[in-house]
Design a protein around this nucleic acid. Structure first.
Lengths: 241, 241
DNA sequence: AGAGGTTTACTTGTATACAAGTATGCAAAC
DNA sequence: GTTTGCATACTTGTATACAAGTAAACCTCT
């Protein structure tokens, strides 16, 4: 590598390194709400928790800061980011904008195999709903949306949506969605799939928009039930004289 | 910080730390093409260049890896990411999708003050075009687009577009745009502003779409003039038998 | 001359030590 | 009682040392 260049590099990351594992774990804890908004954490303590040194943990903290999941205050400490409702709404706008355009393409481009694949996913989701398996249904939900975007011919757009989704999913988890949330989401997925199967672009877009808007209920819920999870200047905003 | 929590944190980063400065510099070098796609770099050498240790440089490398501007191969080395045309097109799709929706909102929401502000920017751009100041016109271009998005009521969406733009701008710079590029961009900005001033949503969207599509010429240009800057599997793809 | 094993230099990943800064708590002075 | 100053413990930022792995170069043997 240090004499010639681009000879035969191996892009293989066969073994996940320490930092990657810690990142996945810590990110999941934040999004799921196990680490609550406002909670103070530190590099040394987290390093102890994972049984590693500060170095890989520090990398993780920086990444999570970029994702606005951690707020690092130099020489002071690090806290799990409070919920920034303005940011959540902005990310929701981004997700909605991208998914509404792609779903229209999906309704147009979807071939028989694609539609069959979606129906198979719907069946799998149905079983998860009946089993009440929230965790796996959540993963199936992601897979469903990723598939729709892939059918639209823009597979890598999912990465951007995944980033935007982090803030949104945090609100969903913290708002403790009601028990029949699974069934409602499933019904909406069914409507989207039906519209695509009939190549009804207008209906597909409408169904997707309705589907994505369910998050606003969660936002209202958390704003009322857990105001201390919100960013300070949002809950202490004095009336502007 | 370590006993009580969220008392009076200072979000102030008055002095940029070493890592932030190195990040801005290195990112600019990559996007501007001073560091060319495929070029091999290493943490110790770059640390020497900046006169710091590996630690802050390592942070920078990780961030740039997340942005897909660097490819880090463990125990082998780090290269400036080759141009991934599929990624460029995907990012272009993302930018276009977001800016086409926001420009429609801009045309609707723009008030007299907003329109006056845009006209002022147009005047400033005109002077930069006549002066042939590419660097400052480029900054003015960013400011113009950010303003349009802000008028639409989605100011933070610009951050996402800024991320997507990195790959796109790299292609623009490397394709060595022709001298009257400034004038053409300026003319397109003028058309967008006029449409907004007349609250002509349809025309505003059309003008923005035309404006954003100029990058495709740059993609074709770089694919022909500098194929060695492209990702390997894109330029060596053998005909599929 | 050519093939194969070894050495060597370089790479990133991780651990540790030190530096600089901040907030808490206590003690002393008023 | 209040305030001021300081010691202390904790925080993140940076520097350095070591570990693990890769690849080119070289040296030896055939």
């Amino acid at each position: 590598m240090y004499t010639s260049m681009q000879t035969n590099l191996k892009p293989l990351d066969r073994r996940q390194n320490t930092a990657s594992q810690a990142y996945a774990q810590l990110r999941a804890w934040i999004i799921s709400g196990e680490l609550r908004p406002g909670q103070v954490i530190s590099e040394p303590k987290m390093a102890m928790t994972f049984g590693v040194s500060r170095t890989p943990i520090r990398e993780v903290f920086k990444r999570l800061q970029d994702e606005k999941l951690l707020d690092i205050f130099p020489q002071q400490g690090t806290v799990v980011s409070p919920i920034d409702i303005a940011l959540v709404r902005s990310n929701q706008f981004i997700r909605e904008t991208l998914e509404l355009r792609t779903i229209a393409l999906t309704a147009t481009h979807a071939g028989p195999q694609d539609i069959a694949g979606l129906h198979a996913q719907i069946q799998a989701q149905k079983q998860l709903v009946e089993a009440g398996d929230h965790r796996r249904f959540f993963a199936a939900d992601d897979h469903f949306h990723e598939t729709l975007i892939s059918i639209a011919g823009q597979p890598t757009v999912w990465k951007t949506i995944e980033d935007a989704k982090a803030q949104i999913d945090r609100v969903r988890h913290l708002s403790l969605e009601d028990p029949d949330w699974l069934r409602r989401i499933f019904t909406e997925h069914l409507a989207i799939t039906d519209a695509i199967a009939h190549h009804d672009t207008t209906e597909a877009v409408a169904a997707m928009q309705a589907h994505l808007h369910t998050v606003f209920a969660a936002i209202d819920k958390i704003a009322q039930a857990h105001p201390h999870f919100l960013k300070k200047d949002q809950r202490t905003e004095a009336p502007a004289f």
